[in-house]
Nucleic acid binder design. Structure first.
Lengths: 354, 354
DNA sequence: CTGAAAGCGCTAACAG
DNA sequence: CTGTTAGCGCTTTCAG
């Protein structure tokens, strides 16, 4: 019974045929007990199982996938796994994939469109069951044409493009789209700020041409219109979704002399930079300036003060995208969904006095 | 040239044979231009390439993998992608895999040993080139036996077990191990605290039986011995690597009346909880209590005050593990490496006055 | 340089 | 219930 010491030579792995021979049955029978989905005499099955054990038989997934149309995998394509925003979506994707018995391939693109192309091509070769793409979408024609192409290309090999947090593609392009209510979240947050009496609210980190950004800004604007509060254009500051920009943008804002009592950061990461900049300049939050973020990543409760922000159902986005994409034939009508967002009020907008 | 509108029926994907027929050559020739690694007349190659384009030919990775021994994938097995600690290692793994032309499979186990077993089995079926496992290792025999088994089992199908941040397996078990200097980092940090004059340093979040934990505690102890500073056993507090424990453990400590001037948290996450608890009780950091963490995750610069911690080369761990595992035949001797750690001093231990 | 033929390991009709 | 017979799509000798 004792395991053999140190025998790490490269053995030929045993195959169905080897198992069949040892069990004294045919290869098909072995295949049948492997599949489990076919009647096999209990005695025979036992013999086969035993032979498998003895030979340490390992199924060859490639051989199985060949012949079938699917590879039992879903691909998750993202700029960078390192961002908490993406990491949580990744978890949802992985969990749903696992629940459906599929493996999850992780592909990063580092924002390089060229790499996205390569990745999609690679996934076609892999015959991935679904390809989930998440990350900012640019509102230009080139971009949409390319995504349209991906949708069709994947469909052609029986795979499926699934988009998270991006606007839908052209009509008729086969793809699954799961969005979250970007505009609504921004509207709710801005209303929260306005109803606390703020009249000069900075929107920090607009990224022209990025769908996520325009939607959030739309919400910001609509809330102002609702209450007939004019928006000073100088309050809307262009930038990027980064901590560094949050810091720098805030510093410049303070130096620039544009007055404001609240600051709505484009993302929580931006807000983290904002808080640091304010702290260094002795601006108190929320007493001097209220601060809000967007995304509700774990960081939001670790910064000081804890951050009021818009919650996005990260994991559910991932799970839903995978589920819809895999079961597209059963629910062809619900291939475009918009999940809800809601604000979470914490200390960065909660005023003690005044 | 206009793309055809909306034709999303399921076509039979074309095969090498289809391409061959259209190009007026044999399947082998097509295969040869696919491989690229064989002389083909320029004219022929052009014809073939053209036929591929016309037919939108897509290689079938499964068919290719069958026949060859490898699937061109490395698997990354982790408790939970969501933790920044793991996310950064994942990035290293993914990057190195991509650099070597391999795909990266993401598998999560949620700390369930049963799932690890299932995952490893699944990876054997996939014929993954390497299986990278990261996360705490338990110092018991059962655990080691199981990992030994995995190492051998993977080896048998031509794959490779790669461990990150875990102690090596039994002698002779084929596996790649990349550790980081846990003990050294803790030693350096504790020395830093001791040399600042602290004599009562809490170690918060010891997890009995977890290799990472014992190594860190060893470093803590060695630093004390070095300076002949006795360690009050009450200063070493058992717990878990979580934010929640950091908060709760600190609260109890403050209530318990055990005096201390510095607190070394087992991880940055724990430290985040510590800082919150201290702040709520009005204990000033670093003036009343200095706080240090371990891991140097991005969070460390977002908490207030910024956290002094031990840096771990996350990405390099991932990259190195993949590189070593894949090239094990070229460098059989260097299959166990220990990467360095170093402390990063920030505000949580930087005293202004006194 | 190119074609014909055989086979990777498994599954899926068809017959028994 | 079980064995036989064909492939799945690609690579790879082995001959031209």
């Amino acid at each position: 019974m004792g395991t053999n010491p140190v025998t790490s030579s490269r053995f030929e792995a045993s195959t169905v045929r080897d198992v069949a021979a040892r069990a004294g049955v045919s290869a098909s029978t072995v295949s049948r007990v492997l599949g489990g989905t076919y009647p096999v005499a209990e005695a025979t099955r036992a013999k086969v199982l035993r032979a498998m054990r003895d030979l340490d038989y390992v199924l060859n997934a490639n051989a199985r996938a060949l012949g079938s149309t699917t590879n039992k995998t879903v691909a998750f394509v993202v700029d960078d796994v390192t961002g908490p925003f993406y990491a949580h979506i990744a978890r949802g994707v992985e969990e749903q994939a696992a629940a459906e018995g599929l493996l999850c391939l992780l592909c990063t693109t580092h924002g390089d469109p060229q790499r996205v192309l390569a990745v999609v091509e690679r996934m076609r070769e892999q015959r991935a069951d679904a390809v989930v793409v998440v990350g900012g979408a640019w509102d230009d024609k080139d971009y949409r044409d390319r995504m349209d192409h991906f949708g069709r290309a994947l469909d052609k090999v029986g795979s499926r493009l699934a988009l998270i947090g991006r606007p839908p593609l052209s009509r008729g392009v086969p793809a699954t789209v799961v969005e979250y209510d970007n505009e609504g979240g921004a509207f709710a947050m801005t209303s929260h700020l306005l109803s606390a009496g703020h009249r000069r609210i900075v929107y920090l980190g607009r990224v022209p041409g990025l769908s996520t950004s325009s939607q959030r800004l739309d919400g910001y604007r609509r809330a102002h219109e609702m209450l007939d509060v004019p928006v000073d254009p100088r309050l809307i500051v262009d930038g990027t979704f980064s901590r560094a920009f949050g810091y720098q943008g805030t510093s410049e804002l303070l130096a620039g002399g544009v007055g404001f009592t609240a600051l709505f950061a484009a993302t929580d990461m931006v807000a983290a930079g904002v808080l640091q900049a304010l702290r260094e300049r002795g601006v108190r939050v929320p007493d001097d300036v209220a601060v809000a973020g967007y995304d509700d990543i774990p960081l939001a409760i670790d910064v000081y003060p804890t951050l009021t922000t818009v919650n996005i159902p990260h994991e559910e986005l991932g799970r839903t995208a995978v589920r819809l994409a895999l079961h597209r034939d059963e629910h062809p009508e619900s291939q475009h969904q918009v999940l809800g967002t809601h604000i979470v009020v914490r200390d960065s907008t909660r005023r003690s006095g005044r």
